[in-house]
Computed example of a mutant assay.
Amino acid sequence: MDAPDKKEFIFGSIFLLANRLQVLGDRWDSDITMKQWFLIVMIAQFKESPPTLSEVAEFMGSSRQNVKQLALKLQKRNFLCIEKDAKDSRALRLLLTEECQEFFLKRQEREQAFLAELYKGISETRLNEVYQGIYQLGENVFEMDEKSKGGKRI
């Protein structure tokens, strides 16, 4: 079998790593799934005001229904509150709870150890290169996504 093209290798590896990291993360902490963790991280990115369900779904690149299912599970665990928007009763806002913040504070050292092991053997120079490459890939994906919403083929 011939060595894959670098671009094809990277493209396939992104999916492989995403799947393996999800399995590893789900094993690492049985109290929260990686998908639930990711939703919490995405909600936390909205600094100004609690985001709506639709805003988070769009930000994550996920369906509103999938985000709502995750949010309902996290609400049952008292990690977030789902509230109707004061101005638009159709919109649902997602608010992280104090219990959620305490949960993440308690596991902070363990998370740092996980990341240290994940990135072991990778120099600062290589880490910066990977960061820049992934950042640019993210920009390209966002741009391609916007074009595809307008019905344009890429």
Rank of each mutant, 00 (worst) to 15 (best):
T33S: 15
I122G: 05
M1R: 11
R153W: 12
L115I: 12
A18V: 09
R77K: 15
D145M: 09
E111P: 02
I43T: 00
R77I: 10
D2S: 14
E102W: 05
K152G: 06
E55F: 02
I32T: 02
R77P: 08
G138L: 00
F9G: 06
D88A: 12
K68S: 15
A113F: 08
K73Q: 15
L16C: 11
K73L: 15
D2C: 12
K106E: 03
L21Q: 05
I10C: 06
Q45A: 05
K152A: 11
G12I: 06
E143P: 02
L137M: 08
Q69C: 08
Q22I: 10
A116P: 04
I154D: 03
C100L: 14
C100S: 15
G25I: 04
V56Q: 00
M60W: 03
Q45I: 00
E124P: 06
L53T: 10
L70Q: 00
K149T: 06
L115K: 08
G150Q: 07
K84P: 14
V141E: 03
F104Q: 01
R90G: 05
L115Y: 10
Y135K: 14
G61K: 02
S62K: 14
F103Y: 07
G121I: 00
L80Q: 01
G12M: 13
V130Q: 06
F15D: 08
F114M: 09
G133V: 00
F38R: 13
R126C: 06
G25V: 07
F15K: 10
L96K: 02
L127C: 05
N78C: 10
D26T: 02
E129T: 01
Q65E: 13
E55G: 08
C100W: 01
Q45G: 02
L96P: 02
E98A: 08
G12H: 14
